[in-house]
Design a protein around this nucleic acid. Structure first.
Lengths: 228, 228, 228, 228
DNA sequence: AATGAATGAGCCTTCATTCAT
DNA sequence: GATGAATGAAGGCTCATTCAT
């Protein structure tokens, strides 16, 4: 005699702009901010929804789940970042030295530039600390190409006698000097407070290039002497 | 699809006999393991209690709160580490080059060695990502001395004409190459899978020393040339 | 451990061309399947809509609510069933015994046959467990006529001395033996696994008829002996 | 600099009697009522907790999950019911006829008795309609023994010539007549309103016994005639 | 001193329904 | 006439904490 659980009617409140696609975009933007600020686990879907002026259920409607939303955020941010900071073509640099300087500057900019798109480095940092299923794809799409290009420049600088292991280690040495300022930022700030405006980034990349060029030249000499 | 974040691993119950102080110690040990494995937020007090063979309430009874327990863990680990690894005297090395090699080897070992002492680097890494009230003290007590020592070695290698900023950046370049293998481990493993046994650590530190010595010598030449 | 209740099975989309009335029909058909498979409460309107190749909102648009749709399904199924299976005339059987056999066979077929027409018994079963507003009408239209016919056969077999209560109880005894294989199917399958093809149904109804004829003859003797 | 998400302190309210075991018992009792009234899916753990005067979390603390609680309820209820309505020892009946009457009465009482322990039949009914992982165990523990005993009585009544299939079908015929009044209650009430006090149960079981004894005797005659 | 039991807040997700188009 | 998008209300469960003993 009963047909239970009739759902009550619910009034409506169009929170976002009104555009059909606006909610999805607002959710993505809010999610990016929250995920960057708190990490995946600590991020609260309610916070994301509120920031976006949308209902919590909208997240599941548009993306399926918190996790899917996270992956979408990562994908979007990575591709956006790549577009904004494209890898310089090494063929356009007159010398390998210039190519190294250009690549390092771009890499450092990618990592430290604190504009609205500075999210990727932070997300990357989080992923490295607490890797999720999204990391492998991220490495493939974002890191590996960059690494390969740097590797090519390093190969040119080390000369024909360099073996693969040496090339790789030297490339790691280059990359590490750049990433350091991202990962160890609190440490750096404690030991030597500094900002990362364009000038600072330029000075830093100049140092790293100078330091590394010296190192690579020395390596080349060592290799050629050992070979002789 | 799931995004499995790390779970506290195995239920390795450290059964407590009944000693009054034993529970406290067991809790600290268990907490260290869990905090390292999962980070502060993801760590579950219930896991810590179970590992320690104690009641959940014991944590709050002994330490007041999860947060207080965390800070206590950090403090203990840091001071223990300092006691166990007193900084070697750079004066004991015949040459600055040898001192650099020795310092780098020790630093890399500390960061990568996966024994029980490996907790501090991991906790440090977590703190750098999500700094808590414990970080400043940790930097002061653990990082800064090490950094000062490396800095002294760098100063010796760069010669009397090096300014403070250059010394600092070069020291960062050194430290960064070592920390890289800790922070970017998932990345390194994806690009070039490797283990970190003693031999590997030795090879790595040899590379970093060689690379950096070349760089520092080049820097010194630049400085002296510029000055002349 | 999971307790998996049935899920609506397969996404067998009944794609709707675009006809105005086609959507309504598709929804009814899909709803019937889903309600039968999952019951009213567990049925999900989204599943129904997907199966029908229609929008979720179409359900409320066409029927007003999930509940109204359910009632409509019940009404349709019952009347369809009545049309398709007009009650056979008992006068067409040579003897009351033959009439009983015929009636039992038909009843059992209706209950156990697993074709599309098998929906009514299952819906009836669900209604008996959790009666809704639709049950009384269902009993009136579907059950009662059948019951009255069986009752007439029983009356013929029990003879003129049978009182109303005895007739009713004996009819219940007949009906119960048939319904048992529907209601207690999981139980029967556990105790004695079996299928319900035409042959099996025939053997079952033969048993029930034989068993019941013996019982009714004995009843008749008792009645006549008591009366004498 | 932050250690986020400090949990707020919470006041206490000892709702139940106060005994340590009381909450668990209260939860079980409340859960039984709610599961019987609504079924597993529709039952709400909040309702259960409120009825028991306990916190929602207490359910998970004591039983692990809603599902585990359900299984526990089923187990408890079944064993309680079995204790209260023990199967009569057929050896204590003077004749097989008396044994049949006794067994049927007990079975019908178990199914229809509407005391506080009338939950099992309802839960059984729900399980038959929407079987869960708990059904097989329920059949094994509650149904099968009863069925075997009835089967023995039937065997005695059918004589030595009865084959296994016949014995089984006849036993089903017996059981079905009893279960009918449980399953088809709404139907029975519509066709012939009645109550199920002790007298009514006695009259019903008398009818079923009489009906079935006649049937079994007829079956026996058939068997012996066919054999001769 | 130490614990088993209990708590309230909060989380992610699901669902029937409704609104604007 | 029909739909995609959005909504509020639960729902089951987890967690750090606290109370009574």
């Amino acid at each position: 005699m009963k047909l239970p659980r009739r759902r009550p009617a619910s009034p409506k409140k169009t929170a976002v702009g009104g555009s059909p696609e606006a909610t999805r975009a607002a959710l993505l933007q809010a999610a990016t901010a929250v995920f960057v600020a708190s990490g995946y686990e600590q991020a609260r879907v309610r916070d994301i929804a509120e920031r976006a002026g949308a209902n919590v259920a909208a997240i599941n409607y548009h993306f399926g789940s918190k996790e899917a939303l996270y992956l979408e955020v990562l994908r979007r941010q990575a591709s956006e970042r790549i577009e904004r900071y494209p890898l310089p073509d090494p063929a356009q640099s007159a010398t390998p030295e210039a190519a190294l300087q250009a690549a390092l500057t771009m890499l450092l900019s990618r990592l430290l530039a604190d504009d609205q798109r500075g999210f990727v480095p932070k997300l990357l940092m989080r992923e490295l600390l607490a890797p999720s299923a999204a990391l492998p794809a991220m490495v493939q799409d974002v890191i590996a190409p960059q690494f390969r290009q740097l590797s090519a420049v390093v190969t040119a600088l080390l000369g024909p006698r360099a073996d693969a292991a040496t090339i790789q280690r030297c490339t790691f040495s280059l990359v590490s000097q750049c990433m350091f300022y991202l990962f160890a930022r609190p440490l750096v700030q404690t030991l030597a407070p500094q900002t990362y405006d364009d000038g600072a980034v330029a000075r830093l990349s100049a140092h790293i290039a100078q330091f590394s060029l010296g190192a690579l030249r020395a390596q080349r000499e060592l290799l050629e002497r050992a070979d002789a």
